[in-house]
Design a protein around this nucleic acid. Sequence first.
DNA 1: TGTATCCGATACATGACTGTATTGGATACA
DNA 2: TGTATCCAATACAGTCATGTATCGGATACA
Lengths: 228, 228
Amino acid sequence: MRVREETDVDNDDGPVESVRRQRTRERLIDSAYEVFAEYGVHAASVEQISERAGFTRGAFYSNFDSKEELFFALESRENALRLDRLETGLQSITPSLIDAEGNYTDGSLEALILAFLDLQPDDRRWCLVQSEFRMLAMRNAVVAARYLEHQEGAGRQLAAWLDQAAALAHLRFTIPTPDVAHIVVALYESAIQTAVLMDPDGDDGSPRDLAMRTLPAIVNALTESIAR
Amino acid sequence: MRVREETDVDNDDGPVESVRRQRTRERLIDSAYEVFAEYGVHAASVEQISERAGFTRGAFYSNFDSKEELFFALESRENALRLDRLETGLQSITPSLIDAEGNYTDGSLEALILAFLDLQPDDRRWCLVQSEFRMLAMRNAVVAARYLEHQEGAGRQLAAWLDQAAALAHLRFTIPTPDVAHIVVALYESAIQTAVLMDPDGDDGSPRDLAMRTLPAIVNALTESIAR
DNA sequence: TGTATCCGATACATGACTGTATTGGATACA
DNA sequence: TGTATCCAATACAGTCATGTATCGGATACA
């Protein structure tokens, strides 16, 4: 039976996990991120992933039961990270809507949308991995539930922020805010995908033109000012 | 050397092709449509595809060089078919914008958008296969060129129709029409994907709610009436 | 009906990936 | 420094898919 080591860290999932083991897992997940993006989940082999992480398959099977489990671990880690970033990012750009005297700056909702778009690191890798996850979800109800849950979480967060920003600007949306959030997300994702398609090697964040051009216009068109 | 048979059909690609061979190819493509949608291009095996078509792998390798070639043949066939359907569909719904006396019916642009959405057979299978193709394209520049070419073709067609419909209704778009077309396509595809995610087995065409709800509102918000 | 050609079926060789069972080096701690 | 435990490396067996080379039945046509 395993005896607890002093360096062990108990973070509530599973009984106990050594730091060494945690590091190995992290490196495997990092590697999986690259390999999955490059070849796809199905085409990637356990050996490729292990090798790129500097291990053999032995290490892999000592830490994960299957390639799919590793993929889910990758998704969990990245989703949590991005949700965090979204939250802090939205908080950081909201204040720019009102100036020092507490007056809202007219027409700046569009500017906020642009700021929001700039928050998103449009990582080619993330787009690919996310697309893989969506495909998996479209064929498996359990995975779909996971996918939709995260998607809705992000959507709610964005909707809440949109409501707050609109209120500050004395505006209101002419369609339900959650729908606006969905539109923003859908157009943003479509734009990222198109960017990846047009420039498969580009890691620069520039070619999100479509979303940058159209989203502010749409959001603007979908608001009306509140009589106060 | 092959001697031309009377039943042969020469349709300009490749020298000559017997009807028997054509039928075999069609059946293999039909089968591939199902199997690719069910398991994905990579997970599907040549044997699965051949078997479901009622052949062995011998037939497959006699007709295609690789699984990928078969996939491209499938895409070509379906893309052509759908582009055709889109064209005739758009033509058939435009006249409903003006009544017998030649007067345009007010506010019916939204109705046309709804009619357009109803045109699209939101096939779960097609969504899956198309997603597979997009993924392949995101990893391969040659495939990407193919994908974008078709996408732009459909976009141009839709944009032209939007312009025509707007003109009949004495409206104009406040952003470039191609952008409007992109928005329509992006939101529509997003809605289909969500529908597949929420109901993996459903073949009924109902849950495109998001697109149905929001697109008319967006298109309406992005138009202004022309002074005449 | 006879025969040449076509085309799909069959058999085989090969390679790749998986998962497990075991080993040996590294690590933590007295 | 000694020792128990851990964890990744290694070796191995088994499965599955691929692609090719060959065979034999079906088809077209005289």
